[in-house]
Design a protein around this nucleic acid. Structure first.
Lengths: 192, 192
DNA sequence: GTCAATTTACTGACCGTCCGGTAAGTTTTT
DNA sequence: AAAAACTTACCGGACGGTCAGTAAATTGAC
């Protein structure tokens, strides 16, 4: 039982790396299998098809980030503090993990419509919705202006987006002053 | 001469629409030709290969936006005004054109390395560089804090990024208060 | 504890389809 | 007539995906 599903985990990691680098449609199953030095059919033993592999990567990461956000931004503080912790939580993730957030929003159109709809709901439930909830809470506590929470969540996410690209100069380490700057810019903008 | 290159123009428009919708690697030459009701080979009469078609779309739009920015944000005003006009200029573009900015940053990794490098330079020269120049000017005029202009340009662009996706609710019309809000958030954040 | 039966975790060969791209011929414009 | 603007027919190869087979691990009857 100790080493069970070792290959499955390696497939998830390597495929995530490659999809982030060159996009879902830019990577073939053959390339993934060759990178792992296994047969292509081995991928299909662990995942029904290519789309299932992508979905496993995305939903797996969404689960991770949901847990982290629930732990780091519980609704027991003021909304400002919670937003600061949310941004910090995201940038505490290594760039290769963070980049999966970009992969998700980028590759949603690549999913077949059934999977697309259900994944879109999950993405909102486990990630975007958390941001919107904090913003809504801040408005009700009169910490923030009565803004459009959906749009505000997009804008906050958008500010971070450039730092979800795998590139050394965009790899902000925890504590980088730019993270602080981004948070301040946004919070000052929406503060009541 | 009147109708010269009529098909070429239609190819550029239809391919842009499809690439924006499903990505460069998600659209085949056959699909583009079928959408235009011409043969696939007709595309190859006007464009050397698929990559040349993508590059023509991207560089064509970069040329457009460069002209617009040079006209609307000349270096004869304060940096704040120029940035306001820059954001307005972008949102004066119809969503389907704006979305090409996203296409560019998204599909740069899909280009073969030679084209990738030269296009990356062009992208900087005609677009990102303009934003950085205004920011640099604002810093020198002591309008803005002495920030990292490259990162600040990314953040400004990032804030707009969610509105570069083709979706009705993200289609900000010129004059939408959200545009004003975005600009204010950013400018307040970097103002000296 | 042994050993046959079954399940797990793969491999190698192969499938039909679609891909980007081309060569040669045909129609249309000048 | 000749150049421009296509179409038709085709190519080799890569694509996602499947299938039969198998070595190794696990299980269960005795």
């Amino acid at each position: 039982m100790r080493e069970k599903n070792l290959l499955k985990q390696r497939i998830l990691e390597e495929a995530a790396r490659l999809f982030v680098e060159r996009g879902y449609n830019g990577i073939s199953m053959r390339e993934i299998s060759e990178a792992l030095k296994v047969s292509k059919a081995a991928l299909y033993y662990h995942f029904k098809d290519k789309e299932a592999l992508l979905l496993a990567i995305l939903t797996g990461y969404l689960g991770e980030i949901e847990t982290l956000l629930d732990v780091n931004c519980p609704p027991v503080q003021d909304a400002r503090t919670r937003l600061v912790h949310l941004v910090e939580t995201i940038f505490n993730q290594p760039l290769e993990r963070r980049a999966i957030i970009r992969l998700a929003s980028q590759e949603i159109p690549s999913l077949r419509s059934e999977a697309r709809q259900s994944f879109h709901a999950l993405y909102h439930q486990k990630f975007i919705g958390k941001i919107e909830a904090i913003l809504q809470d801040g408005i009700e506590r009169a910490e923030f202006k009565p803004i459009n929470v959906q749009a505000a969540a997009w804008i906050l996410l958008g500010m971070m987006y450039p730092f979800f690209y795998a590139s050394p100069e965009r790899d902000l380490q925890p504590g980088d002053p730019l993270i602080y700057m981004m948070t301040e810019i946004f919070l000052n903008g929406i503060a009541q």
